[in-house]
Design a protein around this nucleic acid. Structure first.
Lengths: 128, 128
DNA sequence: ATCGTTGCAAATGGTTTGCAGCTTA
DNA sequence: TAAGCTGCAAACCATTTGCAACGAT
């Protein structure tokens, strides 16, 4: 019986997970690096990318793809929601949403499998 | 009175514009290159990027940013609409949409300036 | 003592820029 | 002609990978 190897417990991995646990919003790899480096000084960006990928594969993190901006990542398992990106500070926030019926919008013959809605504007901090 | 210089008429620029005029969907720079190279063999990708930028600045092209995928571009001036990306062939299509009232979704203090909605799934060609 | 993980640097892939030669006006 | 464009190659930026040293088990 093949047993999936579980990742080793390293300070780097713990610091990266902690960064996401403490964040109140989705983080980019760079943001996660900055946060995790407060614990592990010599942490490298490659390690952040590698761990993000493995946490996504594990289902612990969820990818947050955004139009015209690098991906963010957030802890998985939340209910269906979307995101708001601040054009000033570039931070991304989670927003609850009641997406309308999108099924009727697609051309005939197309198969709809999902959708992304990204709102943008200014967050409370940047709204002046 | 300062007069904005208008770009010179070159075969490259004409071929690039023709690529977008003939396309029935938003094109990536690579797709535009491939289409325009049918007219101008030695066309380079840098020229495509430079012309796309200037056409966007001129207001002739509109940027179509997509989550997790390189930008596409389409002729500007269309009415409000959104896009559908095929997960199989990666082509992007325009879809008419009647977006719901998104204003009520954002957190208090935030200022909503716009939104992007991207549908994804399989286009008619790839739906099997 | 293994073998997975890390840090660093080099490799990628998409996009941008420098520059000499070409072309439009 | 002169200045704007173009093609090519090098530069960039975000992300990925190779590799030897490191460290969890």
């Amino acid at each position: 019986m093949p047993s999936a190897e579980s990742p080793r417990r390293t300070v780097q991995r713990a610091a990266i997970r902690a960064a996401f646990e403490r964040a109140d919003r989705p983080l980019s790899p760079g943001e996660a690096l900055a946060a995790a480096q407060q614990r592990v000084e010599r942490l490298g960006i490659a390690t952040v990318y590698r761990n993000i990928r493995s946490l996504v594969d594990e289902g612990w993190l969820a990818e947050v793809p955004l139009p015209g901006a690098p991906n963010r990542y957030e802890i998985a398992g939340k209910h269906h929601h979307h995101h708001f990106r601040c054009r000033i500070c570039d931070r991304v926030y989670e927003v609850d949403s009641c997406p309308p019926d999108l099924r009727e919008l697609i051309p005939r013959g197309f198969r709809l499998e999902g959708h992304d809605i990204t709102l943008f504007g200014r967050c409370a901090d940047c709204a002046r």
